[in-house]
Design a protein around this nucleic acid. Structure first.
Length: 194
DNA sequence: CACCCGATTATCT
DNA sequence: GATAATCGGGTGT
């Protein structure tokens, strides 16, 4: 497995969103190593995607989506939950990112459970605000480079693993609802809805 | 399982 | 004042 670098993220946002399925989020956190396998993503484009935070241009909130690829865009959702995106787009585009919607816990599950303060095991990481809370991702990560020097980074998928990717409509949006820009590992029980 | 609703705050109208 | 890339607890079927 190798660290995903700028060359991985410097591609079409939809391509990256699909390629991220099966890859790993690693967070070195309070002396622990937390790892989750990505099982669900959504692509958000730039000025051409009405559902994207970047649609109306650059603001203080969405600035990372217009910044260098391979960095994190974290925002506060509904006043209480953090959502984590990787900035990804081809160089001709102004903005773009991939929302990580769900991961499968791989390492550090006990700490993830503590962070979530919830008993139902499947609900630890099966949603965009759930997995960030489980893995200790906060607004402190907004704009940081995804690299071991930042304590948060992504690893490539295990090529010995085989799975199908399913495309569907993005969840929770009121604009551009027909685009099939949500990608899930088919049949994985950690996907946010079944 | 389905639907309903309150929590809580940055951003936009 | 309304909305939002959400979540969990409640009630009813």
């Amino acid at each position: 497995m190798s660290i995903l670098d700028q060359f991985f993220f410097d591609r079409n946002t939809l391509t990256v969103a699909q390629d991220l399925i099966g890859c790993y989020v690693v967070h070195h956190y309070n002396g622990h190593k937390l790892i989750g396998k990505i099982v669900e993503t959504e692509a958000y484009l730039g000025l051409d995607d009405p559902a994207s935070h970047a649609y109306r241009g650059k603001t203080n909130r969405n600035a990372p989506m217009f910044g260098p690829v391979g960095h994190a865009y974290v925002y506060l959702s509904y006043g209480m939950h953090y959502c984590f995106n990787t900035v990804a787009r081809e160089s001709s585009k102004a903005a773009g990112g991939v929302l990580i919607r769900a991961v499968e816990p791989i390492e550090g599950i006990e700490l993830m459970k503590e962070n979530r303060k919830i008993s139902c095991p499947i609900r630890i990481t099966n949603g965009p605000g759930k997995f960030t809370q489980a893995m200790g991702i906060t607004m402190n990560h907004k704009g940081v480079k995804l690299d071991p020097s930042s304590n948060i980074y992504l690893l490539s998928k295990d090529i010995s693993q085989s799975f199908q990717i399913e495309a569907s409509r993005r969840i929770g949006i009121s604009q551009a609802q027909d685009a099939l820009w949500r990608f899930c590992e088919q049949g994985n029980k950690w996907v946010s809805r079944r």
